[in-house]
Design a protein around this nucleic acid. Structure first.
Length: 261
DNA sequence: ATGACTTCTCTAAGAAGA
């Protein structure tokens, strides 16, 4: 069994104690991190390595930043940092590696707010580039896991309030259509596949307006599996408990289990 | 509501997040 976690930590410096506790408790084989908010040199990677993980980083000062952690001495080989033809390559939003016989990507997709701004256009352009690259990955006919914070609420039932989010970039028809175009290439949304009837399957709760105690969340962190990975799907879920910890990220870690090949 | 909360950083009130 291979255990994979994707976690938008919202600042590695601020979240390091929570991350180290999480690694000790769950001991996942592969961790895909997003929103490091720091350059690799400024980050305490030695403590992560002391916890038993090898790391691969693609970071920048202050914003964005994605990484992998791989447990033990297992292979962890970089395939690429950044998307092909990335419209803003200085933004560290994509890293892809080979680990445990899988191709894995850690994705931090642009937020895109406010709608109608340059940022929204950048989001859609970035998603078009991801669509192209995802098609190339599918063509390899290998087990591939595209993990991360997609900043897209796939369906109305994936948010606590359609009305509250109606004007948000995360659930605009264009954002959803762009995600659907990728999924319809042949990817499996693992969390929805495993929990087809859960209408409170959330991965994010805002810090504001008592969103967490009200369970006013939405689902924006996703695992997309190639057919060769989906055939091995054993389980998937949300580590919701982590959102209730002191000094928690506003995202909960999401997890995926794949049977051995 | 030019807010709320939390992170980062040019450590102030600001930018950005979602």
């Amino acid at each position: 069994m291979v255990n994979i976690v994707s976690f938008n930590i919202n600042g590695l410096r601020a979240r390091l104690p929570r991350l180290l506790e999480f690694l000790e408790r769950e001991k996942p084989d592969i961790v895909c991190l997003q929103e490091l908010k720091g350059e690799p040199d400024a980050l305490p990677t030695d403590q992560v390595e002391a916890a038993g993980y090898k790391a691969l980083w693609h970071g920048q000062k202050g914003f964005n930043g994605v990484a992998f952690l791989s447990r033990g001495d297992g292979d962890l080989k970089l395939r690429r940092a950044g998307l092909p033809d990335d419209p803003a390559p200085e933004q560290a939003r994509y890293i892809e590696a080979e680990a445990h016989g899988l191709i894995v990507a850690s994705i931090y997709l642009p937020n895109g707010n406010p709608v109608g701004s340059e940022k929204f256009g950048y989001k859609l352009e970035w998603m078009a580039r991801l669509e192209q690259h995802a098609a190339a990955l599918l063509a390899e006919e290998r087990p591939v896991v595209l993990a991360g914070d997609y900043n897209v609420i796939p369906e109305d039932r994936d948010t606590f309030s359609v009305k509250a989010m109606a004007h948000d970039a995360l659930m605009q028809p264009e954002s959803r259509a762009a995600l659907r175009r990728i999924v319809h290439q042949g990817w499996t949304d693992a969390l929805r596949q495993v929990h087809p009837d859960d209408d409170r399957l959330y991965t994010f709760w805002d810090y504001q307006a008592a969103a967490w105690p009200r369970d006013a969340g939405f689902r924006i962190d996703h695992f997309l599996l190639s057919p060769q990975a989906a055939d091995r799907l054993a389980g998937a879920g949300v580590h919701k408990w982590a959102r209730g910890e002191e000094k928690a990220s506003d995202h909960a870690p999401v997890w995926l289990q794949l049977h051995d090949a």
